[in-house]
Amino acid sequence: MTQHRTLVKICGLSSPETLRATIAAGADMAGFVFFERSPRHIDLETARTLGLMAQDRISRVALTVDARDAELDEIVDALAPDMLQLHGKESPERVAAVKARFDLPVIKAIGVATPEDVARASAYRGADVLLFDAKPAPDAAVPGGAGVSFDWNLLRNIGAANWMLSGGLDAENVAGALRVTKAPAVDVSSGVERERGVKDPARIADFIKAVRAL
Results as ranks from 00 to 15, higher is better:
Lys89Arg: 15
Leu214Cys: 07
Ala202Gln: 14
Thr181Pro: 13
Val186Ile: 07
Ala123Ser: 10
Val211Leu: 01
Ala183Cys: 04
Ala213Trp: 01
Glu195Val: 03
Lys108Leu: 09
Ala146Trp: 10
Ser15Met: 03
Arg125Asn: 11
Trp163Glu: 07
Gly167Ser: 12
Ala119Leu: 08
Gly12Asp: 01
Glu93Asn: 02
Leu165Ile: 05
Arg194His: 13
Gly191Tyr: 09
Gln85Arg: 04
Asp170Tyr: 02
Met164Val: 07
Gln85Asn: 06
Leu72Ala: 09
Ser91Leu: 08
Ala171Thr: 06
Asp170Val: 02
Lys199Met: 08
His41Tyr: 10
Lys89Gly: 14
Asp43Tyr: 13
Trp163Tyr: 09
Leu44His: 12
Lys99Asn: 02
Leu52Gly: 07
Asp206Trp: 01
Val148Thr: 11
Gly191Arg: 07
Gly26Lys: 12
Gly144Gln: 04
Asp170Trp: 04
Asp103Ser: 15
Val186Leu: 03
Leu19Ser: 09
Glu172Gly: 14
Ala30Val: 04
Arg156Val: 15
Ala123Phe: 08
Leu84His: 01
Asp28Pro: 15
Leu52Asn: 11
Ile42Ser: 05
Pro143Ser: 00
Trp163Asn: 11
Phe207Ala: 05
Gly26Asn: 13
Ser15Lys: 13
Pro81Phe: 12
Arg125Phe: 15
Asp43Ser: 14
Gly147His: 03
Ala213Glu: 15
Leu154Thr: 12
Leu130Thr: 00
Ile58Cys: 04
